[in-house]
């Protein structure tokens, strides 16, 4: 059953857990027209060549809607992997692999934040030990410095700057930043402040 929440100024967000039977945890996350399906396998067995003796090896795969993963998807993979690595207590499961697969169902803007949210939800569904949760927030700044949170594709195209943050839940600190366009330091703090709300 899809849980749906509506916040003023944001697109409708929704989340559904445990849709798939094969993965250890799965979730779909919807932000307006953007939708991502995530599956988590692990902690599971791993090839000896890739195992790490003191922590779990985390792998993230981003699958686009059509075709093969492009360079931008690799970039997203790295950002998401490093974000997940910083919250998962990997030391509890040394010499194992944790695989997170993210499938784009529809990209209607703010895709990176949707990836992050879906990954976090799926990890919770899998029952992985984590020291905090995180959420992804995308904001767009237009030419007058107006801030739009969770922009759609049209807003993103028309804006001068798009910033994506991952913010962890326990102390509201910033885990991940990714950006496009030029902006001033003050605008970063405003966006961050708004994202934390």
């Amino acid at each position: 059953m899809m849980e749906v929440a509506e916040e003023p100024g944001l697109r409708e967000i929704g989340c559904e857990h445990s849709l798939l039977s094969r993965p250890d945890g799965s979730a779909t996350f919807v932000q307006g027209d953007t939708s991502v399906l995530a599956g988590v396998y692990g902690p599971a067995e791993i090839k000896v060549s890739r195992e790490m003796h003191d922590k779990a090896t985390i792998e993230v795969m981003v699958r686009p809607k059509v075709g093969l993963p492009a360079i931008q998807d690799k970039n997203h993979e790295q950002l998401i992997r490093e974000t997940c690595e910083s919250v998962i207590l990997g030391t509890l499961h040394p010499r194992t692999s944790i695989t997170i697969v993210l499938q784009v169902i529809n990209d209607g803007g703010s895709i990176l934040s949707c990836f992050l949210n879906a990954a976090c939800m799926a990890m919770m569904d899998a029952g992985l030990p984590m020291n905090a949760m995180f959420c992804g927030v995308t904001c767009a700044l237009d030419d007058d410095g107006q801030l739009i949170i969770d922009p759609n594709t049209k807003d993103q195209k028309e804006s001068r700057t798009v910033l994506t943050f991952a913010i962890e839940s326990s102390e509201k600190k910033v885990l991940t930043i990714s950006s496009r366009g030029a902006y001033s330091p003050a605008e970063v703090s405003i966006s961050l402040y708004q994202s934390c709300l």
Binding site: T83, E85, L175, V188
Partner: peptide
Amino acid sequence: MRKPGGSA
């Protein structure tokens, strides 16, 4: 700006 995860 690029911060791929890690310490908050």
